[in-house]
Computed example of a mutant assay.
Amino acid sequence: MTNQLVLLKKDFFTNDDQAVAVADRYPQNVFAEHTHEFCELVLVWRGNGLHVLNDRPYRIIRGDLFYIRAEDRHSYTSVNDLVLQNIIYCPDRLKLNYDWESAIPGFCGDERRPHWRIGSGGIALVRQTIGLLELESGRSDAQANPMAELLFGQLVTLLQRHRYAIDTPPATTSETLLDKLIAALAGSLERPFALDVFCRREACSERVLRQQFRSQTGMTINQYQRQVRICHAQYLLQHSRLMVSEISMRCGFEDSNYFSVVFTRETGMTPSQWRLLRCRGD
């Protein structure tokens, strides 16, 4: 891609020996597609937005986690009070004898699952560690870089312990109803999702759950579910030869005409127009 925006090490690290730093995004505004001279972890704390990673769109909310390689292309659009933190690092500068490869998906540039979720039970621990890491990465004494690396090792280990796949329910019992709900929504892409059934199973109030979801994400449950399905449809339109009618079924829309109406309302173009535009872009 010509004229690709590249974020440079010299603009984010204080010296050539620094291996880890924290880049706050309070808030994260719309940001054009770019790559980096470094790698990063992206953690979402509030609001919502559209994160496009290597041409795949993700609707992101509180608790989303991404492992970004230097060569990955990503951007942010349609942001709404989006707050996140980027923990940036240079693999070649890390000196700590630690098994980074097993703790960080894609550390060696291999194919990996880049998108995870962090349950509410782990968020407080993760944010506390990032706070300490941010303090150390801002120091200039001789112990700053080693301390920052130690804290980075602690952070990636915490993430490894508390992360779970977006469509898989959290493994521990300490996670909240919101964590379970988000996993259930992501796991129901190809079938209807009944919130009342979920609430009966979890013995919770539907009204209270709706209020909590909106408070944490800035979206209603229906808005989030619809946009997650549209994101999946966009991916299938660009990366498969499936007919629009089959894509609508795979994204939980039993009526392909209704799918086209919703898709057009959300994106400003029909599924066929969107596919044609993206294929031309490729």
Rank of each mutant, 00 (worst) to 15 (best):
I182H: 06
H36G: 02
L7K: 15
Y258I: 07
C231M: 09
L159F: 02
A32V: 04
E134L: 04
S240I: 01
G106H: 11
F107Y: 15
A165L: 12
E40Y: 01
T217P: 15
S174I: 04
L135N: 09
Y76E: 04
A144V: 00
G119K: 12
E134I: 00
N222M: 04
I60G: 06
G138D: 02
L155F: 09
Y224P: 11
D72T: 08
L53C: 07
R46L: 02
A19N: 02
H232M: 13
T173D: 12
I118Y: 05
N222H: 09
H51V: 03
G119E: 11
T176G: 12
L159Y: 09
S102D: 11
S248I: 08
I130Y: 06
G268Y: 11
I104K: 10
Y235G: 09
Q273E: 14
R25P: 03
R280V: 00
Y164I: 02
N80A: 10
S240D: 10
L94M: 12
Q216Y: 14
G63M: 08
S75T: 06
A23F: 02
S140Q: 07
L155R: 12
L277I: 02
L43A: 06
I88C: 01
R127S: 11
L96V: 03
F253D: 02
A32M: 06
N80E: 06
C279R: 15
E190R: 15
I104E: 06
V83G: 02
E246V: 09
I230W: 08
A194H: 13
R62M: 04
T264N: 12
G281D: 07
V83C: 07
Y235S: 11
D282R: 13
Y76G: 00
